[in-house]
């Protein structure tokens, strides 16, 4: 998916993560901030990269501020930011543009 504009999903509340995304400079650039970076940094990074890979995002600047999110939350926030950045609106969805549940979203 192409990242067309900057977007954000998620919050800075406990158990959540805030994912920001913007168009890249020809590559994927990932920054992670987390209070549990020492223990879970590798896992967080792997989950975010796998999710971006499934969504076929290869050219973007992605920032994750993790507040102790489970992997299901990390995935949801990355997807939220990516679909927003690629121009999926509720109006498009209502008009019949379907989200790939169980496909690229899983």
């Amino acid at each position: 998916m192409d990242v067309l504009c900057a977007s954000v999903a998620g919050t800075l509340e406990s158990s959540d993560a805030q994912v920001s995304i913007e168009p890249g400079n020809g590559k994927l650039d990932l920054t992670i901030e987390s209070s549990v970076l020492n223990q879970f940094g590798k896992q967080i990074r792997a989950t975010v990269l796998e999710t971006l890979d499934r969504l076929d995002v290869t050219n973007a600047k992605v920032t994750v501020i993790d507040k102790g999110a489970l992997s299901c939350t990390l995935k949801a926030r990355v997807e939220g930011a990516v679909f927003r950045a690629s121009g999926y609106t509720e109006d498009d969805i209502a008009a019949g543009k379907k989200l790939p549940w169980g496909g690229a979203i899983r």
């Binding site: 999903a9 998620g10 489970l70 992997s71 299901c72 939350t73 995935k75 949801a76 926030r77 997807e79 939220g80 679909f83 927003r84 999926y88 509720e90 969805i93 989200l99 549940w101 979203i105 899983r106």
Partner: peptide
């Protein structure tokens, strides 16, 4: 929109 992604992964995982 964000609530649906959150819901989907909660139901699945």
């Amino acid at each position: 929109d964000a609530a649906r992604y959150s819901l989907y992964h909660a139901l699945k995982e």
